[in-house]
């Protein structure tokens, strides 16, 4: 036995006595808490405490940053956000920009997640086949994921602005330029498009991993039975890919609800409020306006948190059902 292994043995045996003592005193059931205590402390500090602070700010008013200087206002911030003559018409609401943010976010989630899921699935199916240059295409689809969201947005801004690359292309064939970011519908379309372009590679990768995890024998058996391709996809590939699809769906939903950086740089939330999403409203209210309404921003962020919590619960339920 070398001195090093002896030393190692001594060090490894050091916790034995205190652990025996703790086991005796706390019994087995409670001992688990000792092991998770460090993690719980980290969670408490970096997750639970910020949530508690957020709740405190949502229940207080004024413009002071320090909690001790903020007056208690109860549910005033929530009620101010929720006052509306007609919830389907954001302009009838007292906080119209908040409601425009809500509706834009919902619209964005439906289009962006739906399209991204479909395109990622198609891309993964294609990239799973033995095609020429498969490695190149896999890298090419994944490449935008490596770019910073700000870089992505700036690249597309250069392409889409009035004097941008796209309009230069139009001009070269004699077509009239289009103000892509000045028209509300086009600005929204490009927000969805750019976001899909930037993130699709990541979700494609998850689905590709799922496709490759399906045992080859299953496909072989289907081929031997001469199963038509669409039936093969619907009855074999899709059910076996479902856990991955669920992960992609929930991750995509959460990311879409939280959308801010790319669209903020690309359109600034405009024209008007056509691409203002809920997170931009929170940022503007709490950090960009001259009179900072931290309480209002905190209340809006709590409402957003409830939505995200709901989505997470859906994911958990779906995963349990899948298991």
């Amino acid at each position: 036995m070398t001195p090093l292994t002896t030393l190692f043995g001594v060090v490894m045996n050091l916790p034995e006595r205190p652990m025996r003592w703790a086991q005796g005193r706390l019994r087995e059931g409670r001992l688990g808490w000792v092991f998770v205590a460090p993690n719980l402390a980290v969670f408490a500090l970096f997750s639970f405490l910020p949530v508690a602070i957020d709740i405190y700010y949502a229940l207080t008013g004024g413009t002071a940053l320090l909690p001790s200087e903020r007056p208690y206002v109860g549910a005033e911030n929530f009620s101010s956000l929720l006052v509306c003559d007609n919830y389907f018409d954001a302009d009838s609401c007292r906080r119209d920009v908040f409601w425009h943010g809500i509706w834009n976010t919902l619209r964005f989630v439906v289009f962006q997640v739906g399209l991204m899921l479909s395109l990622s699935l198609v891309t993964a199916l294609v990239l799973n086949r033995k095609i020429i240059g498969r490695g190149f295409f896999r890298a090419a689809f994944f490449y935008p994921v490596l770019l910073s969201p700000v870089v992505v947005a700036l690249i597309w801004k250069w392409i889409l602005q009035r004097e941008g690359v796209l309009n230069a292309g139009f001009a070269s064939v004699g077509a009239a330029p289009v103000n892509w970011l000045l028209d509300a519908n086009w600005a929204f379309f490009w927000s969805v498009f750019v976001s899909i372009w930037a993130h699709m590679g990541f979700y494609t990768l998850i689905l590709l991993a799922g496709l490759q995890a399906i045992p080859a024998e299953v496909h072989e058996a289907a081929s031997m039975d001469a199963t038509p391709p669409f039936r093969h996809f619907r009855k074999i590939t899709l059910p076996l890919l479902m856990p991955n699809l669920l992960v992609v769906l929930v991750l995509g939903l959460i990311r879409a609800v939280q959308m801010f950086d790319e669209v903020y740089v690309l359109t600034g939330g405009g024209p008007g409020t056509a691409t203002t999403f809920i997170v931009q409203y929170i940022y503007k209210t709490g950090f960009a306006d001259q009179v900072r309404q931290y309480g209002l921003a905190a209340a809006a962020s709590l409402l957003l948190a409830f939505v995200l919590l709901g989505l997470t619960l859906v994911q958990l339920k779906g995963m349990r059902r899948g298991a």
Binding site: N179, L182, A187, G268, G269, T276, Q280, K284, A288
Partner: peptide
């Protein structure tokens, strides 16, 4: 020139 004002959101300076 509408772009400078209308193509941005909020009160951001451009």
């Amino acid at each position: 020139e509408k772009d400078v004002w209308a193509s941005a959101g909020g009160g951001s300076y451009r």
